[in-house]
Design a protein around this nucleic acid. Sequence first.
DNA 1: AATATAAATGAATGTTCATTCATTTAAAAA
DNA 2: TTTTTAAATGAATGAACATTCATTTATATT
Lengths: 207, 207
Amino acid sequence: MNEHSFIFAPCFMRNKDEHKERLIRDKAMEMIVKEGFDGLSMQKLAKAANVSPATIYIYFINREDLLNHLYNEVQNNFSEVALKGFSPNLSFKEGLWLQWENRLRFINEFPYQYQFYEQFRNSPLINHSDVQLIMDFKVNMKHFLMNAIKRGELKKMEPEIFWSLAYGPFYSLVKFHLQEKTMMGRHFKISPSKLKTMFNQVIKSIQ
Amino acid sequence: MNEHSFIFAPCFMRNKDEHKERLIRDKAMEMIVKEGFDGLSMQKLAKAANVSPATIYIYFINREDLLNHLYNEVQNNFSEVALKGFSPNLSFKEGLWLQWENRLRFINEFPYQYQFYEQFRNSPLINHSDVQLIMDFKVNMKHFLMNAIKRGELKKMEPEIFWSLAYGPFYSLVKFHLQEKTMMGRHFKISPSKLKTMFNQVIKSIQ
DNA sequence: AATATAAATGAATGTTCATTCATTTAAAAA
DNA sequence: TTTTTAAATGAATGAACATTCATTTATATT
């Protein structure tokens, strides 16, 4: 052992099992969606993921850290999917529709992730989370909106009004369908034509 | 004691203290808004309301029963306020605006009630609640929408699309302002003129 | 004032909770 | 194969949980 031993120390280590962490994360989201934050206990989660309770603490500092990591992950996944194929140079109508489609695809594909996300955002946990929207997303949207205004496709308005007009109806429709789903036990996907119909009406309110 | 003694039994009873129940209900909603469903324990609630834990069980069967009663109460209050001054014979624009104003008034006046309501609706607890919208509300809205369609002020569309277009932006704007509030610690009320501006844009999407 | 009743209580109960810890296991490097 | 390391564990810990119960308290009626 010399003074540099901590740098050149050989690394005889066992790797973390990523499949195991994935399982813990997925089961946690599923439990929260089905039983609420109340319903998530570390012991029940351990049992559901087939690991020891202590194992969870190898991957996460504590319960709160686990929840924050889950939220962080979904936030990143969601905004990444929302921007798939997007460019700030698209016409306003094309760009907004693309994001509606992308968001709906994510929600249909990962309903547990999305419902966990909504539950987290509507709870006080959100106040203790320091997760920020990824910068890429912010910058893209800012340029997109500036271009649309420059081209006269969109009139200037306060940002919160824009977001409320452009996405309020979308998320409301999604909520209707997710409620239906949990009530009927079956998943009725939002039909693309219904979505497009509503989109065209929303456009009228923004232009 | 005769066979009718249970009917004519004298009633030497001490009355429930309504002020006490009110306090329990209010503190419960406040705790849930501030700390989530996780943060509501019967012992902490008892302490906050200055009663014994056992007292809560005089008014509510158990924790779940308490939460359901709270939700039920807010649902009723909210839909009652929403209909204040409403008539199905109002013009579509007048009737919808009246409801926006009424709803915003309720949210501004009872933010804890509203935020509890939102948190409950976005949690799985909603699946175990058998609370229904009051019939009066349903009937009124149905006639209102039928009249508006008859007069040509509103085109026929699927109910969930109507609700999403007519209220999605409203609730989205409310959410923006409530988030701001909890982040800044101060309450910035939505200005009526901002609300009216957005309302006029929303109307364009529905007609 | 006396009485009967349910409201109200504080302490207690058994359970479940998040988290820790001494130990074992597996795997990467030598 | 041996060595070293961190992953993984099951059992344990003390705190907090929902709920109950034997008493006491307040009050509407007599």
